[in-house]
Design a protein around this nucleic acid. Sequence first.
DNA 1: CATGGGATTGACT
DNA 2: GTCAATCCCATGC
Length: 199
Amino acid sequence: MAGAVVIDEAFFARGVVQVARDLVGCVVRHGGVAGRIVETEAYHSDEPASHSYAGRTARTAILFGPPGIAYVYRSYGIHALLNAVCEDEAAGAAVLIRALEPLEGLESMRARRGLQDGAALCSGPGKLTQALGVVLEHNGTSLLRGPVRIEPPPAALAAPRLVAGPRIGITKATDLPWRFSQAGSRYVSKPWPAGGRGA
DNA sequence: CATGGGATTGACT
DNA sequence: GTCAATCCCATGC
């Protein structure tokens, strides 16, 4: 594992859980605004929590497309959530980007969010899209070429230590440990239970 | 065609 | 801790 991580279509074409793990530490950039991914979740059409579970529809067509594409959808009528499509066109798989550590363009983030506190700028899937200016119109655009891009982890930053656990905010398949985050990060959407205590 | 629910957030008690 | 906001779309009759 000596070579640098390369983010290309093959990176996203691998198993969605592996991609979810490897995306922690990568950077999401939209113009001059960027943040380091500290939390992700994996979704696959084989399990009922995924939008693609019911099969290919107008809404989920993007999920059944090529990997490396952004799937952006509206949640609870108000929030835009950002996903990266993974695996092949039959998988209906994607990684939800749940939280970022702000790196660049903090002033733009604060202006869009109407907040000052850095830890709260991107600590949730709806928050980070607002902070980055990601909107529904980015649905179907390439995460490799932009306008919204995913970049390899900065060489200056150490590889994060991962924590895995059940996904958040879903009512089905809650047993799958498909949520991944950077251990100890204060930028995650929800803190992890300490010492294996229940939430 | 009517209805219900959701991968959330923020404000309020 | 509780709860409303607000829109897309899957499901059911």
